[in-house]
Design a protein around this nucleic acid. Structure first.
Lengths: 269, 269
DNA sequence: GACAAGAACACGGA
DNA sequence: CTCCGTGTTCTTGT
C-alpha cells in the first residue's frame, strides 16, 4: 500500500538521518525477498558509507560509496523505520542495517516485497523499466504519454512501466477529482480531461506529501502522516454519498483491483 | 515471417529507388491495418517527397520531407514490391503509393500487418518501444541485456522490446549454431554460451543479408533471396539428422511457436 | 476463502 | 511471436 508520497517522505527522512554513516551489521530474517544469497549482503555492505537515498516510484534506493546500491520495495505493505542507538528491532523485522554509531533501520514486510542488492552499474529490470516520475512531468509530456495508447486509463496509470508510483489508494481520489471513470478508454479522453487528470495527479500526490503522506502508513520515524479521510472524497466510502452530487458511491471492480466511484460524476460513457 | 534481414534488404532497395520521388496517389484496400482514417493518408501524402527509408527490426520506416512518416510491418507474411512505370498492382494489393513519375510500390499482407501514418514527432508505441538492433550491439552490450533477466532465452530473443528483428525463422539456426536449447533459463547461461549466442546472431543475420535474405520471401524487386536450405542446419528438417552428431532432429513446442532442435547438441540441462 | 502487487504466461481481437 | 491489452495464476500471511 505505500505509494509515491510515502516513499518521498521516507527517502527525505532517511537522507536527513543516515547520510555518511558507515554500515556495521546486516541482519536478514527473510531470504526469499533477496535477489542474491544473504552472505553477499554480509560481504558487500559492512564498511561502506551511505551516499544518498532517493525514491523511485514505490521503491527506496540507497546508494553507498564504493558502488553498491540497496533497492527496497515494500510490496503490499510494510515499513522502513529508524532504529535508535542500541534499540532492538521488533520481532516482525525482515531485514535490518546497523551503522557504526549504533543507530540503524529495520524493514518489515507484510507480504511480497523486495530488498535487492546491486552494483550501481548493474541491470535491475524491476527499476530500470519504471516509467517517468509523475511529479516531474509537465502537462504536455503527460499528454504525450497517453498519445496513441490503448486500454483503460486506470490500468495505464497503475502500470509502473508507464508512470511510476501511483497505486490503488491515490488513483481513486485522482480519478474522482478529475471526474473520469476508471474504465474509460485512453483514446476517448478529451484534451480537457487529460489536463484535469494531470492536474489532479499533481494535486493529490503533492497534497499528501505536504501532509507527511498517508495516515494509514508509518514514516521513517514510525509516525503516521496526515493524509486521511478528510482528504479522501469517495475512497472506502461504500454506500456513502458523493460530495458533489449526493449520488450513492459504488464499489466496482477494475481488473484485479476494487475501486469506489461516483456513478454520476464519473460516467463511463 | 519477414524478419530483420529481409527488412534490411528491402529498405536498402527502396533507398536506391525511391528517394526524392514525390507522392501522387495513395490506394487503400484494407483500412483495418491503418492507424487513422484512410482519408488522412490521402490528405497528407500526395505532394510530399520521400526523404529516407530505414528498417527498424521487422518494420520499414519511410520518412517524407515535411514531417510525415509511414511505418509498415508485414506481420505474419507479406511483400513490399516496386511498381514499374504504369504497371498495375496485383489484386492482392492492400496498399499502394504511386509517385509523379508513375512508378510506385504496393504492399500485400497475408494476415495481420500494419501500415501506419504518423508525424515524425508523434508517439508510436509499437516502434518507440523496440529493443536495440542486434547488429549494432557489441558482445558486452548484448551480455548486459541478459544480465538479471529471467525466463527462457528463446522468449527473450523473440521479444521485440528486448532486441528487435529476430523471429521464429532465424532463431532456430541461431540457437542451434550456438548449441543452446530454446528453453534454457537466461540465468543459467555461461559467459561462453552468451558469447556464442552473440556471435551466432551476428553470423546468421549477416549471412542472410549478404545473400540477399531468405529464399522464402520476395525482396523489393520481387526476387527471392539466396538464404535457404543450404544455410539452414536443422530448421524444417523433422526426422532428418543433426549435421554435427547425427542425432535425429526433433520438433518441439516453445511457447506458441514450434522449433526444430538437435536433442543432443542443444541439451536443455 | 479473500485479498493485494507484480511477473509470467495464456488468451482473444485486430 | 505479430503485437496489443487483458485475464489468470502464482507467490504469502492474516
Amino acid at each position: 500500500m505505500p505509494e509515491l508520497p510515502e516513499m518521498v517522505i521516507i527517502a527525505k527522512q532517511m537522507n536527513q538521518t543516515l547520510i555518511g554513516k558507515v554500515v556495521k551489521d546486516v541482519s536478514i530474517f527473510q531470504p526469499k525477498c533477496l535477489n542474491r544469497p544473504a552472505k553477499d549482503y554480509q560481504k558487500f555492505l559492512p564498511g561502506v558509507q551511505t551516499e544518498r537515498i532517493s525514491s523511485l516510484g514505490k521503491w527506496i534506493r540507497i546508494d553507498f560509496h564504493g558502488g553498491m546500491r540497496l533497492l527496497i520495495n515494500l510490496g503490499m505493505g510494510g515499513e522502513i523505520v529508524f532504529l535508535k542507538r542500541n534499540q532492538n528491532f521488533p520481532d516482525k523485522t525482515k531485514f535490518a542495517l546497523q551503522f557504526r554509531d549504533r543507530t540503524g533501520f529495520f524493514v518489515t514486510l507484510w507480504w511480497f516485497g523486495y530488498i535487492h542488492l546491486v552494483r550501481k552499474d548493474e541491470n535491475h529490470p524491476m527499476t530500470d523499466t519504471l516509467g517517468p516520475d509523475p511529479l516531474s512531468l509537465t502537462c504536455e509530456s503527460f499528454i504525450k504519454l497517453l498519445e496513441n495508447r490503448r486500454g483503460e486509463i486506470k490500468s495505464f496509470l497503475l502500470n509502473q512501466k508507464r508512470i511510476r508510483g501511483i497505486g490503488n489508494f491515490y488513483i481513486q481520489e485522482i480519478l474522482f477529482r478529475a471526474r473520469i471513470h476508471p474504465r474509460r478508454e485512453i483514446g476517448s479522453l478529451t484534451q480537457y480531461e487529460m489536463k484535469s487528470l494531470f492536474k489532479m495527479i499533481q494535486t493529490v500526490l503533492n497534497e499528501s506529501i505536504s501532509l507527511g503522506s498517508s495516515s494509514y502508513e508509518l514514516d521513517f520515524f514510525g509516525e503516521k502522516g496526515q493524509y486521511g479521510l478528510n482528504q479522501i472524497s469517495i475512497g472506502y466510502r461504500e454506500g456513502g454519498s458523493c460530495p458533489i452530487c449526493q449520488s450513492q458511491i459504488e464499489k466496482i471492480r477494475t481488473g484485479s483491483t476494487a475501486q469506489f466511484i461516483c456513478p454520476v460524476c464519473q460516467k463511463s460513457i
